[in-house]
Design a binder for these strands. Structure first.
Length: 493
RNA sequence: GGCGCCGUACCCAAGUGGUAAGGGAGCAGUCUGCAAAACUGCGAUGCAGCGGUUCGAACCCGCUCGGCGCCUCCA
């Protein structure tokens, strides 16, 4: 039974979808005027995992994640670059898909763009105007917060408190300082659409209401996003949606914490952000490996709390992951048959139960990972005694299927090279495709294999000095050699 | 000024009333030509501090200190 922390009620609640077998969720995506940073990655990942977990529980999930492709920042960026808004948004939507794809974030069921829903937005705005909850002034349309008595129920703020500290310039055309734009008039040079109030474009908040209602209905199950969206974005979505329909909007509001750098929020305005592609470009590991390291790192903290990004943290994630892939490597190698171990079934069952309990507890991924670490530890002990090949397959499958919920452990070979086994004294160099774990620079696999072969020839002749020289020189390139009991060797980066 | 979050070992990180999960790093040992991996052992009498409630508190209450977020575009 999944429990989720609901921002709306301020506590954990048992998750029960409207339709017993179906979950409808909406997550605020990004405004596409720049590359995504790690903070965007965390948000995308958290809801990717929520979606995967719901699916693994047997729900049919309809997952909508939008792109905000009309916005002041986009217009500004287009002007700076001397291009059109479409060019800007196309570029960054593509980049989004590339970056998130490398992270293993599955595409949402529907990924609508604001500009594809202008008609819905205008209709929703008209609906609010006709109900007296919004008013037009000089081609702009504002939502009147005073018309929605429970305004502030999500962010737990009262209108009076907001007024006191408001840093916004008060627009005297607005009836209340917190009234927000549903529709903004456009200058001829700006993107605009015809509307009952003249040419204009949507305000920021209205698009999410229009798109979520269009794709998921007026009331749906889960609405998510980063914590910084609680106010004003989600507060305003609730006000305008409930104001228009008179029904509840989303039932569970889920918000992820920030990625920080040196305990400070990673943000564009502070300038302390790292883009996802920057991490991939800087990384010494292959894309698959880097993507999995990032995932592991981002899931090693509960989604609700802050998460400090650093090179050291990534390195620790890599080391932790190494332990798993070392085990997978050994599981994949045949080491003779061994009598079946009766305790294996029990071990696998226990891990499943612990994993599920952790995920049920508000998506407690650190504890879920701990369950997998526990399995790793037990299986390591079992492999010391020996496991049959059928058992080794089952173990690997277990890691694969539980890992799939987190998007981990799906790769066959990680840092281990392809033709990694070079028997002592009789190596044959087989050149295969560059393995997944290949480093982007440094020695090629063939070079490594050549050196390894030379080393094992030396070992065969008991020329250990030469053998150790080769070990040293490979180590200088970050290559670690492991000699197996049968005299052959494997290597990893 | 208002609303809210956080402070657990060298690092990361669970635990939110019943006597401190897990990982990484480190140290020692087994194994190994040497390594690596794996295995075994070691590691917070204490959870920012001080009071209080309780048979019992890291977990509840109060105060203090320290760090941060939102109220403005922001995942």
């Amino acid at each position: 039974m999944l429990k989720l922390f609901n921002t709306l009620t301020g506590r954990q609640e048992v998750f029960e979808p409207i339709d017993p077998n179906k979950v409808r969720m909406y997550v605020c995506g990004v405004t596409v005027y720049d590359y995504c940073h790690i903070g965007h990655a965390r948000s995308a990942l958290v809801f990717d995992v929520l979606r995967r977990y719901l699916e693994s529980c047997g729900y049919a999930v309809i997952f909508v994640k939008n792109f905000t492709d009309v916005d002041d920042k986009i217009i500004k960026r287009a002007n700076e670059q001397g291009t059109s808004c479409d060019t800007v948004t196309d570029k960054y939507i593509q980049a989004y898909h590339e970056d998130m794809g490398k992270l293993g974030v599955k595409p949402a069921t529907v990924e609508p763009k604001a500009t594809e829903h202008i008609g819905d937005i205008i209709r929703l705005t008209e609906r609010l105007v006709s109900k007296g909850m919004a008013y037009a002034v000089d081609g702009d349309v504002y939502f009147e917060v005073a018309q929605y008595p429970v305004y502030g129920r999500l962010s737990k703020r009262r209108l009076e408190d907001l007024q006191a500290g408001a840093r916004v310039d008060v627009d005297e055309r607005k009836r209340h300082p917190m009234d927000f734009a549903l529709w903004k008039s456009s200058k001829p040079s700006e993107p605009g659409w015809e509307s009952p109030w003249g040419p204009g474009r949507p305000g920021w908040h209205i698009e999410c209401s229009a798109m979520s209602m269009q794709h998921l209905g007026e009331t749906f199950d889960i609405h998510g996003g980063g914590m910084d969206l609680i106010f004003p974005h989600h507060e305003n979505e609730i006000a305008q949606s409930c104001g228009a329909t008179g029904k509840e909007f989303a039932r569970y509001w889920v918000h992820n914490g920030f990625v920080q750098v040196n305990k400070e929020k990673m943000s564009k305005s502070i300038g302390n952000f790292f883009t996802i592609r920057e991490i991939f470009e800087k990384s010494e590991w292959s894309e698959e490996v880097t993507g999995e390291i990032l995932r592991y790192f981002l899931l090693s903290t509960h989604y609700h709390g802050p998460l400090d990004f650093s090179d050291q943290a990534l390195k620790e994630a890599k080391n932790a992951l190494n332990g798993f892939y070392d085990l997978f490597g050994r599981l994949a190698e045949s080491n003779g048959s061994a009598p079946s171990d009766q305790s294996l079934d029990q071990t696998l069952d226990r891990c499943q139960v612990a994993f599920k309990a952790a995920m049920d507890d508000d998506l407690n991924t650190p504890v879920a990972i701990a369950a997998l670490q526990g399995l790793r530890s037990v299986v390591n002990k079992l492999t010391e005694k020996g496991l049959s090949s059928e058992e080794r397959k089952r173990v690997r499958q277990e890691f694969r299927s539980l890992g799939n919920v987190l998007g981990l452990f799906q790769i066959d070979k990680w840092q281990f090279g392809g033709p990694s086994v070079v028997p002592i004294g009789q190596a044959k160099v087989t050149s295969e495709a560059l393995p997944v774990g290949a480093k982007k620079s440094g020695l090629t696999d063939t070079e490594i294999e050549d050196l390894l072969r030379e080393r094992n020839e030396a070992r065969g002749k008991k020329q250990f000095k030469r053998a150790d020289e080769i070990r040293q020189s490979l180590a200088a390139h970050g290559i670690i050699i492991e000699d197996k009991p049968d005299g052959s060797s494997r290597w990893k980066r």
